[in-house]
Simulated scan of single mutants.
Amino acid sequence: MAIIGCGGSGKTTVGRRLADAIGTQITHLDAEFYDDEWNKLPADKFAARQEELVSADTWVIDGNYASTLPIRLRRATHVVFLDLPARTCLWGIAQRRMRYRGGQHTNGVYDRITWSFITYIWGYRREMAPRVRALLAEHGGDAQVHVVTSRRAANRLATELERAART
């Protein structure tokens, strides 16, 4: 399962629920891409790491990273695209900041809020979401693609997918 969407959209929360339901660990692409000092993994190594991750029989990966999204889409059976409003995502990162007080969390998720991150979130639906939709159309294959536009819809979908995974 590939869980994609804007920062603060709830990828980790939905991904964790689905990983638990199918009995696997969730992989956070931020934890694969950045080290403890915010150094980035070279693009070729990042792509190779994702090829390795999706070669497993069962996986849940959360993260956007459009440049390598085709790797995940080619092997995904399900894709959850959290296409939430900017205000909702900004509220999500504010809540995360209050809960964890910044830095890297023990689950590998980074809480680094910069002005460029805020402007990225604000413009995500206008600038990035169309690119994600095009990648889904081009590389999604036979995956079941679920696009949700609210937290309530995301929770309903996660509950439905949890039930389906357990039966």
Rank of each mutant, 00 (worst) to 15 (best):
L69C: 12
P85E: 02
D30E: 12
L90Y: 09
A48H: 11
R74H: 10
L90P: 08
D35H: 07
K40G: 02
C89R: 06
E37N: 14
A43C: 10
F46I: 02
P70G: 04
G63R: 01
W91P: 04
P70L: 04
D57L: 01
L84V: 01
D83F: 02
W59V: 08
V79D: 00
T58K: 15
W91N: 09
P70V: 01
T77N: 15
A48I: 10
L29K: 09
W59E: 07
I71W: 12
Q50F: 04
D62M: 03
H28G: 08
A31D: 15
L29F: 11
A86D: 00
G92K: 05
R49H: 08
R75L: 15
A47S: 06
E51W: 08
A43Q: 15
S55N: 13
G92I: 05
V54G: 02
A94E: 00
A94V: 09
R96E: 00
L69N: 11
V79Y: 00
R72P: 03
F33R: 03
R97S: 08
D44K: 09
R75N: 15
A86S: 06
P85R: 05
D30F: 04
D57M: 02
E37I: 09
N39A: 12
A47W: 02
S55V: 06
A66F: 10
R49T: 09
I93P: 06
I61R: 00
L90D: 07
D83K: 04
T58S: 14
L90V: 08
H78S: 02
T58G: 11
L82G: 01
A31K: 13
G63L: 00
A43R: 14
D62C: 06
A66C: 14
A48M: 10
A43K: 14
P70W: 03
R74V: 07
I93R: 04
C89M: 07
W59H: 05
E32C: 15
H28N: 13
A48W: 11
A47N: 01
W91L: 13
A66N: 13
V54A: 01
N39M: 04
Q50Y: 00
E37D: 15
N39F: 03
D83A: 11
D83G: 06
T77H: 15
I93Q: 07
R97G: 04
A56W: 01
T58M: 13
W38T: 10
W91S: 08
